[in-house]
Design a protein around this nucleic acid. Structure first.
Length: 814
RNA sequence: GCGCGGGUGGUGGAAUUGGUAGACACGAGGGACUUAAAAUCCCUUGGCUUUACGGCUGUGCGGGUUCAAGUCCCGCCCCGCGCACCA
């Protein structure tokens, strides 16, 4: 007789502790550079270790990563599953300003906490490769990359307009300006020209664009990146201005509509604006410019179709037809895109049309509308008219011919522009990697030589930015004052630090060779592991993922990496929302702490399996406490079943062939699902397998159960590594489960002897019949026609047609 | 406005890519065990209808193609995300 208290009870917390200690002590998950094996590099987007610890999004992301790591380890891949910390950033700096605690100190505490919590999730990480972006050993190489970019003219300094709050005495990001006012103090902000550092990502616009179609990334992200780069092909066309020597260059993607350009519009920021005004117009234009320059771009855009603008009083000449056209200033033209000036073709552009309507400007149709076209403003392709020698030409052909004609006369040329701007990387903040530049009166900006790197962040007392728009570093005189590496004369260090995104643009390479003191990485080692096979995250669709690609392309050009693209497969998962379906947030009080789930006694296996069972990984999901309970019940059933097997008196009786067939089908299905990241359906199949085994249990246990239980344990292991490690050992295995060969299936055995054939009459299901799997169409038809439910519908009429899908269905058409 | 996803029971979601819609799980209902509860185990569970066998209906809405449509085509309506006056 078997009593429940005689069995080893399922105690997840005990198992978690036991196995986590073994994995740690035996350094089970050290990644080995083993050229004889296939490599598998998986990584999540490394976390910013905040003070509040792991949240459910982390649990989700890193469970996906870890599950893949464990799955491929069981397939004898050499697996790299690293972890690091993205530690530069505002929260630590603000905390430091408030409390005076050094950011490095707070960061170290948060890392320790994160690491402890990650370990409790049972992640199989190679901790010997841990990196931290604010560690001088790390940012030394971030700075080195900067100097390399500088040497290649890919890092440069440029004066550019920034938002400036005169009260807070700091620059603000565009997003921090609300209605022309500072988000902090509510005072009006100004535009101030400041010298900033940029990375020339625009040099790589085409290269980055070209590789996008070949990436195994979600279309969502690929189109986001394509749009962000925003390539458009067109022409630059010069319009001479009456009365002055300057000409105005416009950019247009539709040079075929040049003859319909009835006025020009300049952005308020356009440098020629003041030159074009006269005594009558200057006051109005000046006021307009002042007003619109103050508005954040976001607000200018939000005002949508309601066009505003002023006439400058000047005229330009359309180079196509010699017509005199008015020059206007309007904020719907953006200063930072193209040339900051457009030729307005109101007949074929909705914005120009709205503007022309409002200010009563001429409209000339130069592209014939198709007959069924009803819109007033047709912006499609067509046949040209009112365009002299180009009349009758298609707009596509006219685009080329008109540009050629303009080029001949030196008043225009083909031109490609991009929406993407260069990457502004300087920050007037303390807590970042110092930009490794020394400013010398004689030699200008000089990069810090490699042997003097890293430029270490000095320890200071007051972390607050200086009032003049410089970081707190500017006050550290003995740090700022240095000598020029070129001439040895007195010089000053750059006091801006780098955007945190710089540090995260190459960490995936540092993981491959984290202890290298001579190089950022050794190309041999990086080439073995690169690219990342699975990169998992749910954020940073554009910025980070574009920057990583940019740097990777540069490294490829530098000969430091033999691949251009850093990430083979991007796994972009959804958000984990609260039970109420809303975003988790402290203020709503609906936050689920993954560590609480573990502590409540569910353990890490339940947490891990649950987050993957919630639904397809790419979808947002809502947390369900009851769902967690369901997964726990499933694991508990698998555990209990195995314990009952151990304690039972076993016979040598043969198990039915169907059960063996189910085992093979389950291996096939689950293995395929792991590969295609269909974790939710993999878990469902394992649940079915367990449910089925419970049915067989009523006949008692046999020795044949061993293989079923081992299969179950192995298939479940990547999701629930602790419990399965224990069961694997209990089943008598001495080799660790981590590296035990993954179960294989025999295709022939996945087939069953009989099949359930669906019988339809005229496409409607009327019966299902059990038949031998290899039944012929004739036999199946006979069996179907003999069925009473089928006969009710076929009556006496003979079938017109029989559609037979072997193994699936038979449709009788009458 | 443009681009990319999506709409399936009370809920999360399955569906071999055109072939038995609702796998698996939650919830709910019923039963077993228990003095009782919890835990566990078993059964039922889209709706309507039928004593039952069964029948009708059903994947956002309206059409279409097909022996057969959640899946393909055309036209709409909603929801989410990204970009957004980019010339």
């Amino acid at each position: 007789m078997l009593y429940w208290w005689m069995m080893k009870r399922f105690n997840p917390n005990e198992l978690d502790a036991k196995w986590q200690k073994i994995w740690h002590d035996e350094k089970r998950y050290t990644a080995l550079h083993d050229a004889s094996k296939q490599k598998m590099y998986v990584s999540g987007m490394f976390p910013y270790p905040s003070g509040s610890g792991l949240h459910s999004g982390h649990a989700f992301s890193y469970t996906i990563v870890d599950t893949l790591a464990r799955f491929y380890r069981a397939h004898d891949y050499s697996v790299l599953n690293p972890m690091g910390w993205d530690t530069f950033g505002l929260p630590a700096e603000n905390y430091a300003i408030k409390t005076g605690t050094a950011p490095a100190v707070v960061t170290a505490q948060n890392i320790a906490n994160f690491k402890k919590q990650f370990k409790r999730m049972g992640v199989s990480i190679d901790w010997s490769r841990e990196i931290n972006t604010s560690d001088p050993e790390y940012y030394k190489w971030t700075q080195w990359v900067f100097t390399e970019l500088f040497k290649r003219d890919l890092a440069y300094q440029k004066e550019s307009m920034q938002w400036w709050c005169p009260v807070d005495k700091t620059v603000l990001a565009n997003e921090q300006v609300e209605g022309g006012k500072c988000w902090r103090c509510g005072n009006e902000v100004e535009k101030k020209s400041m010298k900033q550092w940029f990375f020339k990502i625009t040099d790589y616009a085409d290269a980055l664009l070209e590789e996008i179609p070949g990436l195994d990334w979600p279309d969502k992200i690929k189109t986001a990146q394509t749009n962000w780069i925003g390539k458009s092909e067109g022409a630059e066309i010069q319009f001479t201005v009456e009365g002055i020597d300057d000409s105005i260059t416009v950019f247009s993607t539709r040079p075929d509509t040049l003859f319909g350009a009835t006025f020009l519009v300049l952005a308020p920021e356009h440098p020629l604006v003041t030159k074009l005004t006269n005594d009558e117009t200057s006051a109005a234009v000046e006021a307009y410019v002042k007003e619109s320059v103050k508005k954040p771009e976001i607000e200018r855009a939000a005002e949508g179709k309601d066009k505003t603008g002023v006439f400058t009083g000047s005229y330009a000449v359309n180079p196509a037809n010699g017509e005199k056209v008015q020059i206007w200033v309007a904020d719907y033209v953006l200063g930072g895109y193209g040339t900051g000036a457009v030729m307005a073709v109101p007949a074929h552009d909705e914005r120009d049309y709205a503007f022309a309507q409002k200010f009563d400007l001429p409209i000339i149709e130069v592209v014939k509308k198709p007959q069924d076209e009803t819109s007033v403003c047709y912006h499609g392709e067509g046949v040209l008219q009112n365009s002299y020698q180009f009349d009758g030409m298609s707009s596509a052909q006219a685009r080329e011919e008109i540009v050629a004609w303009l080029e001949q006369r030196a008043v225009g040329s083909a031109k490609t522009t991009y929406k993407m701007r260069d990457w502004l990387i300087s920050r007037q903040r303390y807590w970042g990697a110092p930009i490794p530049i020394i400013h010398c009166d004689e030699h200008g900006a000089v990069p810090v030589p490699e042997d003097q790197l890293p430029v270490v962040l000095p320890e200071i007392e007051d972390y607050a930015p200086k009032g003049d728009g410089r970081s707190a570093l500017a006050s550290v005189e003995d740090w700022v004052n240095t000598t020029c590496p070129t001439c040895g004369g007195t010089a000053k260090r750059e006091t801006d630090t780098m955007d945190g995104y710089a540090c995260s643009s190459w960490y995936l390479l540092r993981y491959t060779d984290p202890q290298n003191h001579e190089l950022a990485w050794s190309p041999d080692i990086a080439n073995y592991w690169s690219p990342v096979d699975y990169y998992v995250g749910g954020d940073h669709a554009v910025a980070h993922l574009l920057y990583v690609r940019f740097w990777s392309h540069v490294f490829n050009d530098m000969g430091l990496l033999d691949k251009k693209e850093p990430v083979k497969k991007l796994v972009y998962h959804g958000y984990v929302n609260a039970e109420d379906g809303r975003k988790m947030s402290k203020s709503l009080g609906n936050v689920i702490d993954p560590l609480d789930i573990i502590d409540q006694g569910y353990g890490a296996d339940t947490l891990r399996t649950y987050v993957l069972f919630m639904g397809p990984i790419e979808l947002d999901s809502a947390w369900s406490s009851q769902g967690v309970g369901g997964v726990y019940r499933f694991l508990n059933r698998a555990w209990t079943l195995t314990q009952e097997y151990f304690d039972a008196d076993k016979t040598d009786e043969q198990l039915p062939a169907e059960l063996e067939s189910l085992r093979h089908r389950t291996i096939k299905k689950v293995t395929g699902d792991y590969r295609s990241l269909g974790f939710n359906t993999a878990i469902a199949s394992l649940m079915e397998y367990v449910n089925e085994l419970y049915k067989y249990k009523t006949n008692g246990f046999t020795n044949g159960w061993q293989v079923h239980l081992e299969t179950l344990v192995q298939l479940l292991a990547p999701f629930a590594p602790h419990m399965t490690a224990e069961l694997w050992e209990q089943l008598g295995n001495t080799e660790p489960l981590d590296t035990a060969a993954w179960p294989t299936w025999d295709e022939a055995l996945t087939k069953t002897a009989t099949i359930t054939l669906a019988v339809q009459v005229n496409g409607k299901l009327r019966a299902t019949i059990e038949l031998p799997a290899d039944v012929s169409e004739e036999d199946a038809t006979d069996a179907a026609l003999a069925h009473e439910h089928v006969q009710k519908f076929t009556q006496d009429s003979s079938p017109k047609k029989i559609v037979f899908i072997p193994g699936r269905l038979l449709n009788i058409v009458i």
